[in-house]
Design a protein around this nucleic acid. Sequence first.
DNA 1: TATGACATGTAACATGTTACATGATTCT
DNA 2: AGAATCATGTAACATGTTACATGTCATA
Lengths: 188, 188
Amino acid sequence: MNKLSYGLLGLISTQPLTGYDLTAKINRFWRSTHSAIYPLLSDLTVKGYIECVSEKQSGKPDKKIYTLSDSGRELLNEWFSSETGSEVIRDEASLKMYCIKCMDEETANKLFDELEIRYKNKIDEYKKALLKLKDTSLEQENAAFGGYILTQRALAKAEIDLCWCQWVRKVYKETDMNFMESSFTDYR
Amino acid sequence: MNKLSYGLLGLISTQPLTGYDLTAKINRFWRSTHSAIYPLLSDLTVKGYIECVSEKQSGKPDKKIYTLSDSGRELLNEWFSSETGSEVIRDEASLKMYCIKCMDEETANKLFDELEIRYKNKIDEYKKALLKLKDTSLEQENAAFGGYILTQRALAKAEIDLCWCQWVRKVYKETDMNFMESSFTDYR
DNA sequence: TATGACATGTAACATGTTACATGATTCT
DNA sequence: AGAATCATGTAACATGTTACATGTCATA
């Protein structure tokens, strides 16, 4: 059982879902692809933590709808009480930003442009997701609550990223002053 | 060449560093371990992007100090201008928080406690790192600038995480009201 | 008429983690 | 006395990514 497997179990615990649904849902909090998820779902089924019902479709592969079993629910509760692993971050933008003073000005400005657009798009995306959640909240309350709080957090972080990028652009330009004088905390 | 290799090249570009130094430095922005980094440094040396000078030590393995070569500098500049990959996040805390409404109250409160302590520790750590940077800025300006802006960002995000966790705890308790009424943006 | 959403799966390859291996010096 | 820091490296195993494979329907 790896962390992703627990995550899948967690999502399934709030409502029955297909591998396709799970791939889309989990990606907001845990980077993954369907190629990693489908084999894990097979494993979880073999181990008896989830159960699967097939729904016939025309033109598409049968839809496999997964639900949590009793032993899956037990395992989930153990996971809830276990120590939480620390966040894994791998951000190429950070690696580049570390070197910002080594780039020529044109390259640096292009990087600022690229990142600002990216963070603005994220903000839009999360705002839209929040509006969408307002419609679907009535039936699936537990899942909606989870989706709501996590999207609020993602939005807040995207806003920080945008603001930070604008601050760095400003501080980068002011080469004559001591950069330690400009605190991002004050700028926010 | 994977992203981590470019990151190592980037760090070395600002100052000569050992594998041990690199492991410590890069971890703030890119989760990795020495077991992944040492083989990459060998590869980069064979390919001629970095050069290595050994310094004899007693009781410890020789210290290998890496510097960037001309072809390494060229490759770095190409990377600076290339499209930036999107951030990879894998956060077990998010996976658990999605299920917060499915946990019993005691488990949920323990999770809130665990995460708040974690975020507070991070905030302390980054504040200390910022103070430390004020002393070392004079000689290594480019590296200090990179370290400074990235630590400011990490601090801002840790503060958001703590604030968010406290907000979720509050909203979680208020079970009778519609949770969509409570916006994290207003709470901040 | 072409792109994207829907829907599942496998294979080859790349990358990451954990444990093993060694050992002096400094801090608590 | 024991833990942490410094310092490099390999091996076995676990995990993740990209490409391949198939095919319909709805939207732009």
